[in-house]
Amino acid sequence: MEQELISKKDLLELTGISYGQLYRWKRKNLIPEEWFIRKSTYTGQETFFPKEQILDRVEKIKNLKDDLSLDEIAGMFSTVPITTALERHELIERNIVSNIALKLYTQQFAEQQRFTFKEVLHIYILDKLLSKGDINLEEGKTLLQLLHDHFGKVEQAGGQLIFIRKMGVTSFILAQSGDIYFEEGVRVVFTMNLLTCIEECKLKWHGGESHG
């Protein structure tokens, strides 16, 4: 699928940021190197960006930059995993995940007091779907198992989580980005972008630290 591109000039005009800001964000790794696409035009080489991704990213940076340092924001967007862990009570007190989701996770796997970012991310995804009412507890267990077994394989590639229903039977699908087609009669209940989820979860993880 051909993605829509935006020129650097149009990007700056549309978002109101300056060249200096853009180069600064690039230096701080807030915008990934791969997004700078060089193409030949009549004025020579010009830089283009994947439109949807860059607009989304610039918007996020603009919203975050008053509260967080650029290095902290870079950490949030980075795909390098966070290596620290959080205590169980911190997760609840800081409202990162709900008690119900946490309990479901520890019942399924093991009772534990410290949680790594990866574990919290799985609980966060579960919690998000439970609280929206998209899935029930029983389906939550299936989801946790799926994330546990296969999440690592799709998270780097910008994967997605799809939940389908047919004749009352439900099923989860973890897929790398790309088109997926379903047979007739399948209802797609939701599609979830996992990179967005990781960013949201990181924001919660870091957010409490800088404010409290």
């Binding site: 060249y19 200096g20 853009l22 180069y23 600064r24 690039k26």
Partner: peptide, 8 residues
């Protein structure tokens, strides 16, 4: 330099 970018 092929490209130069920055604040000042």
């Amino acid at each position: 330099a092929r490209e130069i970018g920055g604040e000042t």
